[in-house]
Nucleic acid binder design. Sequence first.
DNA 1: TAATATTACTTGCTCTCGCAATCGTTTCGC
DNA 2: GCGAAACGATTGCGAGAGCAAGTAATATTA
Lengths: 138, 138
Amino acid sequence: MHLLRAYSALEERFSGALSVHGLSLKEVLLLMHLEREPSGRLTRVALAKRLNVSASTVTRMAQPLEKCCFVSRETDARDARLAFVVLTDAGKEAVTNTRATLQRLSSEVFRDRWTKEDISQLAELLGRLTAGHPGDIS
Amino acid sequence: MHLLRAYSALEERFSGALSVHGLSLKEVLLLMHLEREPSGRLTRVALAKRLNVSASTVTRMAQPLEKCCFVSRETDARDARLAFVVLTDAGKEAVTNTRATLQRLSSEVFRDRWTKEDISQLAELLGRLTAGHPGDIS
DNA sequence: TAATATTACTTGCTCTCGCAATCGTTTCGC
DNA sequence: GCGAAACGATTGCGAGAGCAAGTAATATTA
């Protein structure tokens, strides 16, 4: 049950810091999922499953990102229904910068009071909790 | 980072089950915070801080609960600005029932694959993560 | 005591998101 | 091949939540 509390507390902290980059936390996660893909692209429904949001939300989230040139749109020659969301070079750079910010923030949160073992243990337990679900991210 | 994932996965699972009681997860948390208070009542701003939401959200959340007679309104004789949210007997019963549902659900989630030590360790780590924040709940 | 600041709460506006309906496209069964 | 079912994406609508403005009451300061 502590999860709920921990989530809202951290979410507040992280989303505040991310506004520096002009991106919301959810948008960053979207870009990270794209980055994780070898092809650098995903369909909207695949993104929706990974992000645990509806397909319409992905459609709406991708629009401003497309305007910012962090993602672009690509269609499949074989299946005209598919409209891939593709990570651009500018998007990759944004992810890299944002990840650096996140890591700096994490070390602040964990500074003192936390050993490496604590952190890896927490990660392991949370990972086990979500095992079987699709959208893991490092 | 796994937190985000774990949160959304569990939130989906729990909120679905809670709809049986006609209450949302956030409403249940509100009632639990009231129950936790010896006086059984809190002002709206105090609730907002504990729930990590804005004051206006508390005002709006309390309205349907008041209609359901799970909470009532009480004013302070000394300070007419204060409008306490008070847990009624029906509200206490609702919390008790809902907690039973939640515990049953938890044991389902943790069944197999989790030892008692795992669970207490996870709780301890998450608790440490939120230490210093106001809204802890058991 | 009187004017100002602060606090608690409410309301209007806006944004975000999920659901359901829709459209275009592909695939399956015959 | 052809109609029907399934699928991916988009759009309209409603619910939920935060921000800012407004109101009423209390606290503070001159």
